[in-house]
Design a protein around this nucleic acid. Sequence first.
DNA 1: ACACTGTTTGACAGTCACTGTCACCTGTCT
DNA 2: AGACAGGTGACAGTGACTGTCAAACAGTGT
Lengths: 202, 202
Amino acid sequence: MNDPRADAAPSVPLRERKRLALRAEIQQTALQMFAAHGFDNVTTEAIAEAIGISPSTFFRHVPSKELLLLGATHRGRAQIVANFRARPADEDVADSLVAAILGRTAQFVDDEETLELWRRAMASAPAEMRRASLLNREDCDELIEAVAARLDDADELRAGVLVRSTLAAVEYAYEWWLGHDDADSLHDLTRQALEQVTRGLS
Amino acid sequence: MNDPRADAAPSVPLRERKRLALRAEIQQTALQMFAAHGFDNVTTEAIAEAIGISPSTFFRHVPSKELLLLGATHRGRAQIVANFRARPADEDVADSLVAAILGRTAQFVDDEETLELWRRAMASAPAEMRRASLLNREDCDELIEAVAARLDDADELRAGVLVRSTLAAVEYAYEWWLGHDDADSLHDLTRQALEQVTRGLS
DNA sequence: ACACTGTTTGACAGTCACTGTCACCTGTCT
DNA sequence: AGACAGGTGACAGTGACTGTCAAACAGTGT
């Protein structure tokens, strides 16, 4: 019972550890291959083979090739929504939204190496895919709904415009950061973008 | 020489008229089929067959099935950029941008029937595709560049945030309009969204 | 009416992302 | 050890594209 490995093992059913490890390996390997050879030049079959699994298994763990690239950005999507919901109800809505987003970007720090891989992989991706989106359609709609609930007036248009334009600003800051080695930190850039957008564009 | 058909024929080389007509037919037929059976349930082959052309010919005229749905929104993309460039250089940049967009949406009026088809087609499309984007990646970048050129300070981040969040607001208004039969006109909704975003979100 | 030339077309074969099925393993629990 | 859920590879299939090729066709000059 006091097997040194027992600390990690018993809580996490071991089978799940394997699954998680495999998923991480797919993600990592795919990113490396994308960065090295370009997104379009890497087939899902090649990734599977590099890891030593069958194509069927590959797709059992990965919803799509695209998400292998974009998934990094989407990760923690739900967290922004949760952050927003956790804000005090009497706070200004825009402020809550800003806080929810900054709460997420604050902890968004992959290691340098992974980041560099992702940057190169992203650069090789087809144009339509190159837009870094923090939230997918569903999560975004959920956030809009949450915001609308806090806006007393029945005008949902305002909620949507608020969320979508705010997210757009943040996403641009994100892309900017990816494209500029010398740029400020993600957090600072995000703050700048948010300030501009909430203060009124000019 | 005074053949009645000669009025239309000589300027447009006739061969091109056929091409244009075919393209329009594909677009129209596809939209009808999407609306009737759902985007995913209509294969490119089926569209080709409905029109009476081969699958090869279909793809010779259409870059992708997706663009058959989204192309309508993208049409006139370049116009927004052109509109912006045509604004006086001493005008406030945000105002120029607003004017450029409103100049486009003002004339954006397909006939009721086509619009209804598109609405239904859009509703049946997979979630990731459902976002109405006025500009594709390239056009958007071009607009950002144009805006940056007008912003004296070297800070391009501001230009990007301005463009992207403004467009996001407009796109939301557009989607809102598509989803609500009873809504105000596109033009009014767009104006509202733009006002909110330029005045500062709140 | 005639060939000459460049475009357009359909048939066909191929690639690639993804899905479904099915028989076989392999941890896990008893 | 034995049962059983969950994971796995082989395989066949679908659907959006892409490339190639020979035949049909429009536009031009004679």
